[in-house]
Amino acid sequence: MSEEMEGGTVKKFLYVNRKAPYGTIYALESLEVVLIGAAFEQDVSLAFIDDGVYELMKGQNTKGIDMKNFSPTYRALEGYDVEKLYVEKESLDARGLAEADLIVPVKVISAREMTDLMAESEVVLSF
């Protein structure tokens, strides 16, 4: 399953983001794991399903709730070599969203394809 590379094992990590960006801390603390995890040079993918798709929405404004708008951090992921972002089509559709509403380039996939992605991942961290 995992291939030996110089410097150690490389596994397929999948971070599954399921929660809205505000309301609970899961989305923010998930992103913190992704950023720290990037230093380990693993094969990383991010999935956004359910309310997790809201994490990537353009034009977030958190002034009224006195919380930090951390959505620009998703744009920095590329600099950490985290480039595989998958968004579930059904979750977008159910919320009246489209790819053009998102802050970063993503690959929109079906729920069926999402299950395949999960099945082929070796370490799934779900937030």
Binding site: G8, T9, K11, F13, Y26, E32, V33, I36, G37, A39, F40, Q42, V123, V124, L125, S126
Partner: peptide, 21 residues
């Protein structure tokens, strides 16, 4: 300790089991 300990656990263990919502 740091979050790196979580990533390392994911790499080293056969299974990482999450308990939570």
């Amino acid at each position: 300790s740091g979050l790196g300990q979580l990533i390392e656990a994911g790499i080293q263990a056969d299974r990482l089991v999450t308990f939570g919502d």
